[in-house]
Amino acid sequence: MTSHVLAIDLGKTGCRGSLRVDGSQVGYAEAPGAPGLAYATGVIAAERAIYAVTRQIDSLPTTFTLSVGAAGAASAPDAAAALARRLAEVPGAAAVAVTSDAVTAHAGALGGSPGVVLAIGTGAVATAVDDAGGFTRVDGWGPQLGDEGSGGWIGLEGLRAALRAHDGRGQRTILTEKAREHYGIELEALPKYLGEQDNPALIAAEFAPFVAAAVDDTAAAIMAAAASALARTVLAAIERSGIRPPVPYAITGGLTKLGAPLLEPLDRRIAHAIDRRDPIGDPIDGAALLGLDPTTALEALVTRISDTY
């Protein structure tokens, strides 16, 4: 029987959609992301982002499974259920599956096998699945309460350092000029500019690559702190899950593009506890897997609307 699945990876930075027929991608589209389902308008923003993707994909099949990994779903299960109900109205969506983007990241990276996955982008979260299917999540609390070491966190720390230097409260740093250049405004206008954004964490995350590339003590200290924060997240996930080291481990997400300034110190801090694996796939692969397979260890974390399941 031919399988049709529209897999959605909905993060705070972007929303990606992949239409797959019997495992082969036949359509793809991208759109801006959404702040997260935990926000007051998170469900509406998520629905808008997903529709922006579906409208771009030509020749959607008559019936298909719509499988979504959405930022914030783990913290807001009621919102995830509400999103699933709304998506059941998408023309052709005979089945809907909604879960956290952290869950789809784990499924994509380790193919449903036990282990720990660190997903880092605008936000940051580590997930662990043990041999019995027990699930542990560490961080992923959003930009106000957590996501330590994430792109949003690094960007904000860089902007704070720039403002401290501007005020004379901190040491001089190249980040001051980089912030002016990137945002095209004077530093005094940054609070108003960020406050006007629907997704301020995303705007702050834009600055993370500049922090990683900057060659001065302030930027280096921020990157070292980010690596330490992410290492604590991984090690806490291992300890809380009870999985005995060395633990199968993979890292995924757009922030991996920052490369050595972040990844080398992170690897050093967790090397004693992990068995490093290359990711099998990415979160959109995980969404495709979970959309069609209700028997994985992660099934309890998936909200489904379908006559089948």
Results as ranks from 00 to 15, higher is better:
119 A>N: 08
119 A>V: 07
122 T>W: 08
123 G>K: 04
123 G>N: 05
123 G>A: 13
124 A>L: 07
125 V>I: 15
126 A>R: 03
127 T>V: 15
127 T>M: 15
128 A>L: 09
128 A>F: 05
128 A>M: 09
128 A>C: 08
130 D>W: 11
130 D>V: 09
131 D>C: 05
131 D>P: 04
132 A>K: 10
132 A>I: 03
132 A>L: 13
134 G>I: 04
134 G>M: 05
134 G>L: 04
135 F>W: 11
136 T>N: 12
136 T>Y: 11
136 T>G: 10
137 R>M: 10
138 V>Y: 09
138 V>R: 11
138 V>K: 09
139 D>K: 06
140 G>E: 02
142 G>K: 06
142 G>A: 13
142 G>T: 12
142 G>Y: 07
143 P>Y: 10
144 Q>M: 12
144 Q>D: 10
144 Q>F: 09
146 G>Q: 05
147 D>I: 01
147 D>H: 01
147 D>V: 01
148 E>F: 10
149 G>E: 06
149 G>M: 11
150 S>A: 15
150 S>P: 09
150 S>K: 09
151 G>F: 04
151 G>W: 02
153 W>D: 12
153 W>I: 08
154 I>Q: 00
154 I>R: 00
156 L>K: 08
156 L>W: 08
156 L>Y: 05
157 E>Y: 04
157 E>S: 12
157 E>F: 02
158 G>A: 02
158 G>V: 00
158 G>T: 01
158 G>I: 00
159 L>W: 04
159 L>F: 07
160 R>I: 10
161 A>G: 01
161 A>E: 01
162 A>P: 00
162 A>T: 05
165 A>E: 00
165 A>M: 03
167 D>L: 04
168 G>D: 08
168 G>F: 02
169 R>A: 10
170 G>T: 01
171 Q>Y: 07
171 Q>C: 10
171 Q>W: 03
172 R>K: 14
173 T>Y: 01
174 I>R: 13
175 L>W: 00
175 L>M: 07
176 T>R: 14
176 T>H: 03
176 T>I: 00
176 T>Q: 14
178 K>F: 01
179 A>E: 10
181 E>Q: 14
181 E>V: 12
181 E>N: 13
182 H>A: 09
182 H>Y: 13
183 Y>V: 06
184 G>E: 08
185 I>A: 05
186 E>K: 09
186 E>P: 06
186 E>I: 04
186 E>V: 07
187 L>W: 12
187 L>S: 11
188 E>I: 09
188 E>D: 15
190 L>A: 12
192 K>C: 06
192 K>I: 14
192 K>A: 14
193 Y>H: 12
194 L>H: 07
194 L>A: 11
195 G>Y: 07
195 G>S: 15
196 E>I: 01
198 D>E: 15
198 D>V: 13
198 D>N: 14
198 D>S: 15
198 D>T: 14
199 N>T: 07
200 P>W: 02
202 L>W: 09
202 L>D: 09
203 I>P: 00
204 A>M: 13
204 A>R: 03
205 A>C: 12
205 A>T: 08
206 E>A: 14
206 E>L: 11
207 F>Y: 12
207 F>G: 02
207 F>M: 07
207 F>A: 03
208 A>V: 09
208 A>Y: 02
